[in-house]
């Protein structure tokens, strides 16, 4: 397993304009993340977890500091370069799944591969594999409206994992799920993390998720207040 640093954050600051003033969502953030980590940004609502996740995912830009993802300074990337970074190396899992309602499960999972212009045969194989990882082979032709919340989130994981990204960014992935579905999904992600060495970064305040994390970075009011590695994982492991 290659445990080199893939995300490096130095002196990160993020301000949001509010009226005539600014709201500082993140400040003085310094974090290094290695490949294959299963870590969480934890903290209460408004602590800046999602903002940090968005900046790492090149969906938002920093105000000050430097964020390097896979040796790319995301602050200086053009729109096309940022899109390319997301398309090839990053997978996203959202709290509300963000599945395309008119697409079938297969089409939803296939979408990232279409953007990568993969040949049809390869796409089909990859989608089937991804759906097998999350245990949804039998729902291949269903539409999101026909699935439960847990199933939707599993489709969302399959979509994030289908291209075998280096990093998966999951924003409150279990917030809309019951305990059973949450554990099922977290186990799935945990096994993908160990099998594919994919780095998982969660933004969460859900205890169910926190139990599975190997590293917990706690944020309060936009600042890192604690960064601890968990060696003994009681439930997930």
């Amino acid at each position: 397993m290659n445990n080199s640093i893939i995300i490096q954050i130095k002196n990160l600051k993020k301000d949001f304009p509010i009226g005539k003033g600014v709201f500082t969502a993140l400040q003085n953030i310094n974090i290094s993340i290695k490949a294959g980590e299963f870590l969480g940004l934890i903290g209460p609502s408004g602590s800046g977890k999602t903002t940090l996740l968005n900046i790492i995912g090149s969906l938002d830009i920093r105000t000050e500091g430097e964020v390097t993802v896979l040796d790319k300074n995301v602050s200086t990337l053009s729109q096309i370069e940022a899109a390319n970074l997301r398309s090839v190396y990053l997978g996203f899992i959202f709290q509300t799944y963000n599945l395309l309602p008119v697409y079938t499960v297969f089409e939803n999972v296939e979408l990232p591969l279409l953007l990568l212009k993969q040949p049809q045969a390869e796409r089909k194989k990859a989608v089937e594999d991804a759906l097998e990882w999350v245990g949804l082979e039998d729902k291949i032709n269903s539409r999101p409206a026909q699935l439960s919340g847990g199933e939707c989130q599993r489709v969302s994981i399959a979509r994030a994992m289908v291209k075998k990204p280096k990093i998966v960014l999951a924003d409150e992935p279990t917030a809309n799920l019951d305990a059973e579905n949450s554990h099922h999904i977290l186990k799935t992600m945990e096994s993908l993390n160990s099998e594919l060495n994919t780095t998982f970064i969660f933004a969460t305040h859900d205890e169910k998720v926190i139990q599975y994390l190997q590293r917990k970075i706690s944020l309060v009011d936009g600042q890192v207040v604690n960064d601890e590695k968990v060696t003994n994982i009681p439930i997930g492991g």
């Binding site: 997301r86 599945l99 953007l115």
Partner: peptide, 16 residues
């Protein structure tokens, strides 16, 4: 809008 955001997150540029 969610769909638009998802497309961008999955790797499309806003122009695309």
């Amino acid at each position: 809008q969610k769909e638009i955001g998802t497309h961008i997150a999955l790797g499309m540029t806003q122009k695309q």
